[in-house]
Protein backbone atom coordinates (compact mmCIF):
# COMPACT_ATOMS: atom_id res chain seq x y z
CA UNK A 1 0.00 0.00 0.00
CA UNK A 2 1.21 3.51 -0.82
CA UNK A 3 2.61 5.44 2.10
CA UNK A 4 0.78 8.48 3.45
CA UNK A 5 3.39 10.38 5.32
CA UNK A 6 2.73 12.90 8.04
CA UNK A 7 4.97 14.92 10.32
CA UNK A 8 4.34 14.86 14.05
CA UNK A 9 6.07 17.45 16.18
CA UNK A 10 6.13 17.35 19.97
CA UNK A 11 7.37 20.29 22.02
CA UNK A 12 7.22 20.74 25.79
CA UNK A 13 9.02 20.63 29.11
CA UNK A 14 11.29 17.59 29.32
CA UNK A 15 9.93 14.84 31.55
CA UNK A 16 9.90 11.08 31.92
CA UNK A 17 7.90 9.12 29.38
CA UNK A 18 7.16 11.53 26.53
CA UNK A 19 8.44 9.26 23.77
CA UNK A 20 6.89 6.22 25.43
CA UNK A 21 3.42 7.75 25.63
CA UNK A 22 3.43 9.29 22.16
CA UNK A 23 4.73 6.18 20.42
CA UNK A 24 2.27 4.00 22.35
CA UNK A 25 -0.57 6.10 21.01
CA UNK A 26 0.85 5.79 17.51
CA UNK A 27 1.21 2.01 17.82
CA UNK A 28 -2.34 1.69 19.17
CA UNK A 29 -3.57 3.44 16.03
CA UNK A 30 -1.46 1.41 13.59
CA UNK A 31 0.91 4.22 12.65
CA UNK A 32 4.38 3.21 11.57
CA UNK A 33 7.25 5.52 12.62
CA UNK A 34 9.60 6.04 9.66
CA UNK A 35 12.01 8.55 11.13
CA UNK A 36 12.52 10.19 14.46
CA UNK A 37 14.77 12.96 15.68
CA UNK A 38 14.83 14.46 19.11
CA UNK A 39 16.75 17.16 20.89
CA UNK A 40 16.61 19.39 23.95
CA UNK A 41 16.45 23.06 23.02
CA UNK A 42 16.87 25.37 26.05
CA UNK A 43 15.27 22.88 28.44
CA UNK A 44 12.51 22.15 25.98
CA UNK A 45 12.02 18.66 24.70
CA UNK A 46 11.62 18.87 20.93
CA UNK A 47 10.83 15.84 18.80
CA UNK A 48 9.99 15.41 15.16
CA UNK A 49 8.68 12.19 13.68
CA UNK A 50 7.81 11.13 10.18
CA UNK A 51 5.02 8.56 10.30
CA UNK A 52 3.07 6.51 7.83
CA UNK A 53 -0.69 6.94 8.13
CA UNK A 54 -1.74 4.49 5.45
CA UNK A 55 -2.78 1.77 7.90
CA UNK A 56 -4.43 4.07 10.43
CA UNK A 57 -8.13 3.33 10.46
CA UNK A 58 -9.46 6.20 12.48
CA UNK A 59 -7.69 9.55 12.35
CA UNK A 60 -10.23 11.15 14.66
CA UNK A 61 -9.39 8.67 17.41
CA UNK A 62 -5.67 9.21 16.88
CA UNK A 63 -6.12 12.94 17.19
CA UNK A 64 -8.17 12.50 20.34
CA UNK A 65 -5.46 10.23 21.83
CA UNK A 66 -2.75 12.77 21.02
CA UNK A 67 -4.84 15.58 22.49
CA UNK A 68 -5.15 13.66 25.74
CA UNK A 69 -1.36 13.24 25.95
CA UNK A 70 -1.01 16.94 25.12
CA UNK A 71 -3.15 17.83 28.11
CA UNK A 72 -1.83 15.24 30.56
CA UNK A 73 1.80 16.11 29.93
CA UNK A 74 1.44 19.81 29.01
CA UNK A 75 2.90 19.32 25.55
CA UNK A 76 2.23 20.83 22.19
CA UNK A 77 1.67 18.10 19.60
CA UNK A 78 1.01 18.84 15.94
CA UNK A 79 0.37 16.43 13.11
CA UNK A 80 0.36 17.60 9.50
CA UNK A 81 0.54 15.80 6.17
CA UNK A 82 4.10 15.82 4.90
CA UNK A 83 3.33 17.27 1.47
CA UNK A 84 2.56 20.67 2.99
CA UNK A 85 6.22 20.98 4.02
CA UNK A 86 7.43 19.66 0.68
CA UNK A 87 5.26 22.24 -1.07
CA UNK A 88 6.34 25.16 1.05
CA UNK A 89 10.04 24.51 1.32
CA UNK A 90 11.02 22.61 -1.84
CA UNK A 91 10.66 23.45 -5.50
Amino acid sequence: MEQQRAVITVVGKDQVGIIAKVTTALADNQLNVLDISQTILQDFFTMMMIVDLSRAADLEKLQADLEKIEQDMQLQIDMQREDIFQSMHRI
Binding site: V7, T9, S37, T46, M48, D78, Q80, E82, I84, F85, Q86, M88, H89, R90
Partner: peptide, 11 residues
Amino acid sequence: NIAFTEIQETI
Protein backbone atom coordinates in the same frame (compact mmCIF):
# COMPACT_ATOMS: atom_id res chain seq x y z
CA ASN B 1 14.11 15.29 3.78
CA ILE B 2 12.64 18.31 5.44
CA ALA B 3 14.85 20.13 7.93
CA PHE B 4 13.63 20.61 11.46
CA THR B 5 13.90 24.39 11.15
CA GLU B 6 11.60 24.31 8.11
CA ILE B 7 8.98 22.35 9.99
CA GLN B 8 9.25 24.78 12.87
CA GLU B 9 8.87 27.68 10.48
CA THR B 10 5.60 26.31 9.08
CA ILE B 11 4.20 25.63 12.54
